[in-house]
Structures are given as C-alpha cells and as structure tokens.
C-alpha cells in the first residue's frame, strides 16, 4: 500500500462530500425556481400544509411546554447563585423565541416530517410511481417537492410562534406554581423585556428550518436506493441531514442576526 493512500482516501471523501453538497444545493435551487413557475398544484400544497403544519402542532406544543418549564427551573437555579432569580421570565421568553422554539420545533418536525416525506417519496420511487408521474406529463419536482417545500417553509414559522407562546406558558406555569412568582409580575417581565426583533428573528429561523426539513425529505426520497433497505436508509439520511443542517443554519443565522 502506498504511503499516499490515506491522503488519497481523505481526498476521495472530501470530493464525495463536496459532490453531495453540490447535488443538494442544485436540488434546492431547482425547487425554489419551480415555486414561481406554473403549473401550481394547490390541492397537494393544501394537503402538505395540513400534514406538516396542523398535524405537527401536538408534538411541537408538547416539546415547547416541557422545554419552557425546564428552562424556568434551570434559570432560577442558576440565577440563584448570583441573586438573579428575577430574570427568569425574560430569559425564558428570549430563550424560547430566539432559540429553543424554532430549533427544537425544527428538530421535532425534522423527525416527524422529513422521515415521512423521505419514506413516502422513496416508496413512490421504488414502486415506479415517480416514473408513472413523468409518463402522465407531471413533473415530480412540481408535484411532489414544491408543495411540500412551500408548505413547510410557511408552516414552520406558525408552528414556532405557537411553540413560543406555549413554551412561555410552560415557564409561566412553573414560575407561578413552583417558584412563587407573582403571575402579573411574571407576565409583565416577559412582555417588557421581549423585543419584536427577538420574535421576528426566531420566525425567520423557523422558516429556514422548514425549508431545510422538506428539502432534505424530498431530496433523500427522490434519491432513495432500491427496496426496503434503500427507503430505510433514505429516511435515516433525511432526518440526520435535516437535523444537522438545522443546527448549522441556526448558528449561521444567529451569527448574522445578533453578532455585535
């Protein structure tokens, strides 16, 4: 074996990763370009909106509720070390709307929606339904990808907003019932310290995360291998890649929005 073999291996892996990033970028750009060109499949968009938005509400709501509650307990315990217990309402609110609402909501939706999209489209691919779509003069990108990507991009901010409110409520419930906060003072603190940009930045993040979730689900479904194993791998790849990209995008967006 040549002494350069490990370097060649690293080179091959790097090239493979770059090629994969390129393929995903081209796919995402193609999806965006198709959003603005007819035909538009309104019924499919409506169904995707219902599935991605409405049916994700319970999981996003539960996640936000418990996260808000846990956050209140943690901040109270941490704040007690330097007599800053009173910051609980404002930190819970800022933490939820800027970070935890969109990020945890995005991750939960990634687990639920990216997996389901990848499995559905992957199964359609291995059972030749995608080929059937083409022979029926229907572009799979327009019929399958665009409605899901658009629905997820629009639904995620709404889900995040609902998650923000429920998360703050979770913190409020814990603050009032367990930490002896006055309910009026808690709510006043929450409202006083929360700026509109905190909320808007979180909603923009959520929209980007929604785009990532649906794009990864569709991309991996469309590129699914053969058989049950291929669909299973596509599903796993969709969830993992969507989750990692959400976290990476979150860092970049936070840097962009809040870096001094």
């Amino acid at each position: 074996m040549s002494v350069l073999a490990p370097i060649a291996g690293i080179g091959r892996s790097t090239m493979a990763i770059l090629a994969a990033i390129g393929r995903v970028a081209i796919y995402a750009a193609s999806a965006v370009s198709h959003i603005f060109r007819p035909p538009f499949y309104i019924r499919e968009f409506g169904q995707a909106l219902l599935y991605i938005g409405y049916f994700s509400l319970p999981v996003v709501g539960m996640t936000a509720l418990f996260t808000g509650g846990a956050l209140a307990l943690q901040i109270y315990a941490g704040g007690a070390r330097f007599n800053a217990e009173s910051v609980v309402p404002s930190i819970v609110a800022i933490g939820m709307v800027r970070e935890l609402g969109p990020v945890l909501g995005g991750l939960m939706v990634a687990g639920r929606v990216a997996a389901s999209i990848a499995a559905e489209i992957g199964t359609m691919k291995v059972t030749e339904q995608i080929d059937a779509l083409v022979t029926l003069s229907t572009h799979p990108m327009k019929y399958l990808t665009v409605p899901r990507v658009l629905a997820a991009t629009l639904a995620m901010p709404v889900l995040a907003a609902v998650g923000d409110v429920i998360g703050i409520m979770g913190g409020f419930l814990v603050g009032v019932t367990r930490l002896d906060f006055n309910s009026y003072a808690y709510l006043k603190n929450t409202v006083d310290f929360l700026e509109s940009w905190d909320v808007v930045s979180g909603l923009i993040k959520a929209s980007v995360f929604g785009f990532i979730v649906a794009t990864m689900g569709c991309y991996h479904g469309m590129n699914s291998g053969r058989g049950a194993q291929g669909v299973g791998r596509a599903t796993t790849n969709a969830v993992v890649s969507a989750s990692v990209l959400i976290l990476a995008a979150n860092f970049l967006l936070t840097e962009m929005f809040f870096a001094q």
Partner: peptide, 20 residues
C-alpha cells in the same frame, strides 16, 4: 416538446404504479 410527446403515450407499469 416534452408534454406533447408524453401525451401520445400510455404506460402500464409492472407493479401498476398506482398512486396510493
């Protein structure tokens, strides 16, 4: 032209390929 071309064809797939 793709649409006009495909409009001339019908296809029965091996497994039916019906949309679930």
């Amino acid at each position: 032209e793709r649409d006009a071309f495909l409009a001339r064809f019908g296809m029965l797939f091996q497994g039916g390929a019906l949309f679930d």
